[in-house]
Design a protein around this nucleic acid. Structure first.
Lengths: 135, 135
DNA sequence: CATTAATGTAATTTATATTGTTACAGTTTT
DNA sequence: AAAACTGTAACAATATAAATTACATTAATG
């Protein structure tokens, strides 16, 4: 998918299983096995998207902003994709070619349809469902 | 999606509209506006996947191996994705954490489901359908 | 049979995107 | 005041993708 999606799923699964405990970015980073700063950057993003809350200072950390049953995997997907997901075509097809002139537009249409199908599928699973798979 | 998918769609759309003409890699590269060597690499791949045929030497080029109606966009997607598409998680979560130990497996399950939904959707459109959108 | 116009392919470089690191300021609890 | 956190900027390293160069090979054609 996207490295950030995997990190966010990991973070949120840990939070879902934390039962009201504030988990520190260092603890999360230890489970994911990545640098704590990357975790904090992801935490900031997920917080901005309303999926978790954080507390600064000693005994600080993060916890879910709502119950895991209210968070769909598609929400997490949407929260972590940067702009386009399928696309970012920084290509400049030849505008003098009938195909080149239109291809970007038609590919984008295709990407949009595909993404909708993907989102629909990911909307079937909640974070709670996912987190229960670890039992 | 993937830069190679876009290139392949572009190549195949041009071939679909070529009506039995052999198109050269230089011509294709001119429409896509990328280096001809990249096009040839993609042509090799698409040929190995049975989507087109090529002819060497003077007046050589490529053409579709079958009618555009027989090629689904999902075939092209499958032909261009390298190994995993959603995934390639070269991350090593902490095996001493109950979540870290299992997350890769569960994410892969999710990716597989998502990819199936995507493929199903892309299977609804043929290269012919796509190519007709340029009229 | 030499010329020309193609493909095939390896090796290398360049560009871009992703991921990781360091350092330190700010916040809150004790 | 000390300790344990988060927040964030600036930078470094790595990985991936794209482009380039160079040349061998193939086949048509005059």
């Amino acid at each position: 998918m996207n490295g950030r999606f995997a990190i966010s799923m990991h973070i949120l699964t840990l939070l879902a299983q934390a039962n009201g405990e504030w988990l520190s970015s260092d603890f999360l980073a230890g489970s994911i096995n990545i640098n704590p700063v990357l975790v904090r950057k992801e935490l900031i993003n997920l917080r901005n998207k309303g999926l978790l809350i954080s507390r600064e200072g000693k005994n600080g950390g993060s916890m879910l902003a709502k119950s895991a049953a209210q968070i769909r995997v598609s929400d997490i997907f949407l929260a972590t994709r940067q702009g386009a997901f399928l696309g970012t075509s920084r290509n400049n097809p030849n505008p003098n070619c009938p195909v080149g002139k239109q291809i970007t537009q038609h590919l984008n249409g295709l990407y949009q349809e595909a993404e909708e199908a993907l989102l629909h599928k990911l909307g079937d699973t909640t974070l709670e469902d996912f987190s229960h798979r670890f039992n």
